[in-house]
Design a protein around this nucleic acid. Structure first.
Lengths: 343, 343
DNA sequence: TTGTATGCGTTATCAA
DNA sequence: TTGATAACGCATACAA
């Protein structure tokens, strides 16, 4: 019965606004969320009271009362990988206008961590979930299928979406890159791969398919490691590959970091690129066009993947699930000096 | 009076656990948060009930009831800048074990966006706040000073912390890099700067101080742009600088992206590095030691800054504010081929 | 269009 | 050490 001191540190609540505006609390609530359902006059009074008090709604109370948090859960395997950094930026940029917050987590390329984080996220009743790749564990898949919110799988596409997908085919990317090297005149084309997560595996599969189709495949051409990718590692992989196969005349690199390591090592070892060895990367980071020689790569649309993922989820939240549950953003081969053997 | 259908989708609540364990709800709450305050027997019964039901506490309800969210608010100016990506990774890695979530936002190097985001974050009553730099707007500073949670300013250190700080002196970094170039024998040393945020400005100030002390300063040696940094931009800035000052014999680059652009352009223009022009970067990204020639740079401890920021905040939360409110993690000059004129 | 009563799942308070 | 009760701030259901 004692009027307890406010636990909340005295910040203005919706009741304070309502009192000042001379209306009911629920009207304030509505004026903030669905302004069109409140009369012009009241809306203005309320708006003024909000500003006078500096009222900011409490997202926790809101989430509790509505059994739904205005949160997009985002799971990525890496925060520092430039590719995912750009995806994440696309997501944040698309979401910064609206009421939604982002809950980001790093799975460290681990399916088990993904499961754990998914559990955690789900306990918040997110408005939508964005997960990387299509190789979720069975448990994760089940969690996602029964999550009563839109789910978007990003980076890759496949035949069996949990809900929606936006990405591109890494297998095709690997095939196109490899075919380009073959057409450029290379015959002994090495594959250099780090990390070897599922997407890397599929690029490798594309490489193999292209090489076999051309009758050029040799398992000794493949050099991979589970170690995380880096420019340093690119150099090391290239050295290993050359030691195994001194007659290499081309390399398709898992990603641009590896390719850059190859380029630098070629400088150091005075190996002519592309004349002696041609080089193709993957992702087409900004620096590939500035490198010397400039590096051929597969351009992927990371930022756009982030944006589209949000767009699709948003549409689903608004009740208008997009007709296409699978969006293929494709990729483009960027031909540059590192594979141009003409001159 | 009607038993309303549960809005929450039927997930088990603390009451369900309490019933199954045959205890009061509050005891369950305590058993989860302060196990030592609950008797061994009850704790076990509760633990079992939790597992049987698959109970996961609702963070929103928890935040509402305790007027405190288990959230670290983190404000960075960029998500894709490799430096901040690593800081953020350090923060996430340090926090992934405990109960704290991360609320990350991108200020896009805008003080006004930072203010807005701070307002938003504060409405969640975060457990701690981590902000980038020391140049908050007056409004932001006031918000942070009155935020009743630990605040850590990261990346930079200065004389007047809001609460705590961890970083290093960018001015000193700029001075050390420039002095190194001077000692290497360079006389007409250019400064190449992109973005020119406060930290870049202070590196420039360090450069100027060193150049003036050596009697070498000339304003025409400085080439800057507010445009965001990239390898491409590094090339362009370098071309501009050379056009203005063909007699350049060294460049100190704002960061490693710029330096890499310079290196590539030197290859392309057949300018000998370091003999004709020496190059020094800033941050020491992995690739700098692999580049050809390898690039001298200032090594900074990004990941560690993220970890320490969390550590300091955590200590403050636990009531044991660290004795040193200002932690200088310093930096190291990494001498490499790009400034080695001996041979 | 607006308001009233009630509940969301949890923790703080206070008493036992 | 444990529990009953009352918030926390807001949104839903329903009525006016």
């Amino acid at each position: 019965m004692k009027p307890r001191t406010r636990r909340g540190g005295g910040r203005p609540t919706i009741a304070d606004v309502a009192r000042l505006a001379g209306v009911g609390a629920i009207t304030v609530s509505r004026a903030l969320r669905e302004p069109e359902r409140v009369s012009e006059t009241l809306r203005q009074q309320i708006q003024q009271a909000v500003e006078e008090l500096g009222y900011v709604p409490d997202p926790n109370a809101r989430a509790l009362a509505s059994a739904r948090a205005e949160v997009f859960g985002v799971l990525v395997p890496s925060l520092t990988n430039a590719v995912f950094a750009e995806v994440v930026r696309g997501i944040y940029d698309s979401l910064s206008d609206g009421p939604f917050r982002v809950q980001l987590a790093n799975t460290h390329y681990s399916g088990l961590e993904e499961e754990r984080l998914l559990q955690l996220f789900l306990s918040q009743r997110p408005a939508a979930l964005i997960v990387s790749g299509i190789d979720q564990t069975d448990t994760s898949r089940r969690l996602l299928e029964t999550a009563d919110c839109p789910v978007v799988q990003i980076m890759e596409i496949g035949p069996d979406p949990i809900d929606m997908m936006v990405g591109f085919s890494h297998l095709e990317g690997g095939r196109v890159a490899t075919n380009h090297l073959i057409e450029a005149g290379c015959r002994r084309i090495g594959f250099l791969g780090a990390r070897m997560d599922p997407r890397s595996q599929r690029r490798l599969a594309g490489y193999k398919a292209a090489m076999k189709a051309a009758g050029l495949f040799d398992p000794r051409l493949v050099t991979t490691t589970p170690v995380p990718s880096s420019v340093t590692l690119g150099r090391d992989l290239f050295r290993d590959a050359l030691a195994k196969m001194p007659s290499l005349d081309g390399v398709f690199c898992n990603n641009d970091d590896i390719a850059l390591g190859v380029i630098f090592e070629c400088h150091r070892a005075a190996i002519a690129v592309p004349q002696t060895i041609s080089v193709c990367g993957f992702n087409d980071l900004d620096m590939m066009q500035v490198a010397y020689p400039s590096v051929t790569s597969i351009r992927t649309h990371r930022y756009e993947i982030g944006r589209q993922a949000v767009g699709m989820a948003m549409a689903a939240i608004d009740g208008s699930r997009p007709e296409n549950r699978i969006v293929d953003l494709g990729f483009e081969l960027r031909r540059r000096e590192s594979t141009d053997r003409q001159n």
